[in-house]
C-alpha cells in the first residue's frame, strides 16, 4: 500500500469514535491470541488495529469487525488497556456511515439465538 497517501482521516475517525489512542497498541497480539472468533475472521483483531494505525482503508473491507461479538475478552487481556471492541464498533460505524453493508441480517444463522440477543450484542458498544 502507498503509505505516503494513506487514509489518515480513517485513523483519526476511529480514534474519535472509540476514544482510544490507536498508536498505543504495540502489537503484542494478545487480543488475537485470546479471541474466540478468529476462525471466522478474515484478518486478526491485531491486524485490524495495525491497519488503522497505517491508515489502510482496506480494513473497511474486512469481516473481522463484523464477526467481533464484543465478548470483551481482548479488552480484558490487553496489556495497554485498549478497548478493542470499541475500536471494532468504531470501524462498524464508519462502514455504516459510508453505507458499506457488510452483513445481510436475513442471512445470519440465528437458529437457537433470540433476535434480541443478537441485536443487543452488536450494539453492546454503541451505548
Amino acid at each position: 500500500m502507498d503509505l505516503t497517501n494513506s487514509d489518515r482521516e480513517l485513523t483519526a475517525n476511529v480514534e474519535e469514535l472509540s476514544g482510544e489512542n490507536i498508536f498505543s497498541c504495540y502489537q503484542c497480539g494478545k487480543c488475537s491470541a485470546g479471541c474466540p472468533f478468529t476462525e471466522e475472521m478474515d484478518i486478526l483483531p491485531n491486524q485490524v488495529i495495525k491497519k488503522v494505525q497505517m491508515g489502510d482503508g482496506s480494513v473497511l473491507d474486512s469481516d473481522t469487525p463484523w464477526t467481533c461479538a464484543s465478548c470483551l475478552s481482548c479488552e480484558v487481556d490487553c496489556p495497554k488497556g485498549n478497548d478493542v471492541p470499541a475500536i471494532m464498533e468504531a470501524i462498524r460505524e464508519i462502514s455504516l456511515r459510508k453505507n458499506l453493508d457488510r452483513v445481510d441480517i436475513n442471512k445470519l444463522e440465528t437458529k437457537g439465538l433470540p433476535e434480541i440477543a443478537l441485536v443487543s450484542n452488536l450494539r453492546k458498544k454503541t451505548g
Binding site: 500500500m1 505516503t4 484478518i43 491486524q47 495495525k50 497505517m54 489502510d56
Partner: peptide
C-alpha cells in the same frame, strides 16, 4: 513491508 498487517508498503 509491515509483517503484522501482511502489507507491502511504499513510502515517498
Amino acid at each position: 513491508l509491515d509483517e503484522i498487517s501482511g502489507e507491502r508498503v511504499e513510502i515517498d
